[in-house]
């Protein structure tokens, strides 16, 4: 147990020292959100309708940048090999890595998405479903990212995103639908429940699958 707390602390330290890890997704998110009014139209009526989809797609793309690299540094400095050899519970370590990565790369974006009220004229009553759907939907995307990262370890290829984006489609659909439902006065709780179900269902399977994928590289 102490061992895992130490790993958790270590991961936190690494991410907080390496400021680019959480600044680059935030910068990407802010730039794209402020580009939409310029590129599409600054008519509130048009932007308001597009906002749920725009925010969700932007969050998806910005997590894509950060999650490619979840294992790559550990692979380059050889610590993955050491972990594999240590005989410790690998799936728990992967879980910790995903969790810390989520806190540093997704959580700031989710908080910043409140800004869309000013930038995209997003209606305030839609904020609650937006935040909830992002909080529950992004961990699932992070799980896909970890699996993609584990599979394409050490190779800078297109395989990662190509694998991850189609898998994330159900999450994207359910998330934007929840926001649209609540803006139209329809109960959106069933979408949130389904998003939670996807997360809970995939959690153990993807954890074991990514451990398996990591082991494949060192056979």
């Amino acid at each position: 147990m102490i061992y895992f707390i130490k790993i958790l602390k270590k991961e936190f330290l690494i991410y907080s020292r390496k400021s680019s890890s959480f600044i680059s997704p935030v910068v990407f998110f802010l730039i794209s959100i402020s580009l939409y009014p310029i590129g599409i139209s600054n008519d509130p009526g048009i932007l308001k309708n597009l906002a749920p989809g725009l925010i969700w797609i932007t969050v998806l793309l910005s997590t894509l940048i950060s999650f490619q690299n979840i294992f790559s540094e550990d692979y380059e400095d050889g610590s993955i090999e050491l972990l594999l050899a240590s005989g410790q519970n690998l799936s728990l370590i992967v879980l910790i890595k995903i969790f810390v990565n989520w806190i540093f790369s997704c959580l700031p974006i989710i908080i910043l998405s409140v800004l869309s009220v000013f930038l995209l004229y997003f209606p305030q009553e839609g904020l609650k479903p937006l935040i909830i759907s992002l909080l529950i939907g992004t961990p699932t995307i992070c799980l896909f990212g970890a699996l993609a990262g584990a599979l394409s370890l050490g190779k800078n290829s297109i395989t990662g995103p190509a694998l991850m984006l189609p898998l994330s489609l159900p999450v994207l659909i359910l998330g934007t639908q929840a926001i649209n439902y609540s803006l139209n006065g329809i109960n959106f709780s069933s979408n949130i429940l389904l998003l939670t179900a996807i997360l809970v269902f995939l959690l153990p399977i993807i954890l074991f699958a990514s451990v398996g994928a990591l082991k494949l590289h060192f056979n």
């Binding site: 709780s189 979408n191 389904l194 939670t196 996807i198 809970v200 269902f201 153990p204 074991f208």
Partner: peptide, 17 residues
């Protein structure tokens, strides 16, 4: 762990629909 998580997921899906 697998059985527990999938049970939870099934319950959530059935609540949703």
């Amino acid at each position: 762990f697998i059985v527990f998580c999938s049970a939870l997921a099934f319950v959530l899906v059935y609540f949703a629909i």
